[in-house]
């Protein structure tokens, strides 16, 4: 479904991605882990075309991401941003229905509102929330709204960028469960970036660890705890000593 081959990306003298290779199969839930600044978010932005790789090839469904109609390409994706990235000036339901009310396949305002309320219900939010503005919601509720927006148009591929950042453990668990349920229910291909090991265990079919802009380890979730990879073991156990420098 998503194929990443020898992708390099630099910002000035900072070589963020240094030959990343990865394959994500259709319907699979891939989680990318790694320390801060190892290129996880940049990789995600390269797949979406928000950043252009310096070299290498990224294909989605066999088609290169930087060719063809951008709107058609992006219509296949949904994304939950790290801090939800809700539009402040729009109400909750307008945020959720944003894509539904625009583009060649736009639907009427009333239909879009109905779908938005249904998606809000799916992520555990009551219809009364729909007319509020993002600033009136808690962090956990904003994440849920972001999740509802990501799934509103029923995309084939969903990206989750640090879905549990800033949430308490209980809310993190709720969001992790929701993500897993929704991905399974929709049969979507999911790519998640996280530092949170509870998210990894809840969401992942496969795990890839990025370090120094390269894939350090990749494998099935069942192999995660017995990988024998010193980088991965240091990361998942949170040890200060090991091959990964604590001060970067």
């Amino acid at each position: 479904m998503i194929s990443i081959k020898d992708v390099h990306k630099s910002f000035s003298n900072n070589n963020v991605l240094q030959g990343v290779n990865m394959e994500i199969a259709k319907g699979e839930s891939m989680v990318i882990i790694g320390g801060s600044g190892t290129g996880k978010s940049v990789l995600l932005k390269c797949i979406l075309g928000l950043e252009n790789p310096d070299s290498g090839k990224i294909t989605v469904g066999g088609k290169e991401t930087n060719r063809g109609d951008r709107d058609v390409f992006l219509a296949r994706f949904g994304m939950l941003f790290q801090n939800a990235a809700l539009f402040d000036s729009l109400s909750v339901w307008q945020n959720v229905a944003f894509r539904l009310m625009r583009g060649p396949n736009k639907i009427s305002k009333n239909d879009a509102r109905d779908i938005a309320i249904e998606k809000l219900r799916r992520v555990g939010l009551k219809p009364e929330v729909s007319d509020k503005f993002p600033a009136e919601l808690s962090g956990g509720m904003q994440k849920r709204v972001g999740l509802a927006r990501a799934i509103a148009a029923e995309p084939e591929i969903i990206f989750f960028d640090e879905p549990t950042t800033g949430l308490d453990p209980i809310m993190s668990g709720v969001i992790n469960e929701l993500i897993r349920e929704i991905v399974v229910e929709m049969g979507a291909t999911a790519l998640t970036i996280t530092h949170d090991m509870s998210s990894v265990h809840s969401i992942a079919d496969k795990v890839t660890m990025l370090h120094d802009g390269q894939v350090q380890w990749s494998g099935n979730i069942r192999e995660l705890d017995n990988s024998g990879n010193p980088y991965l073991e240091q990361f998942i156990n949170g040890h200060a000593n090991g091959p990964i420098e604590a001060v970067r």
């Binding site: 932005k45 075309g49 928000l50 951008r70 992006l74 219509a75 944003f98 894509r99 625009r102």
Partner: peptide
């Protein structure tokens, strides 16, 4: 970035 991902 969210606008871009929403095809806008």
């Amino acid at each position: 970035d969210a606008l871009v991902t929403l095809s806008t």
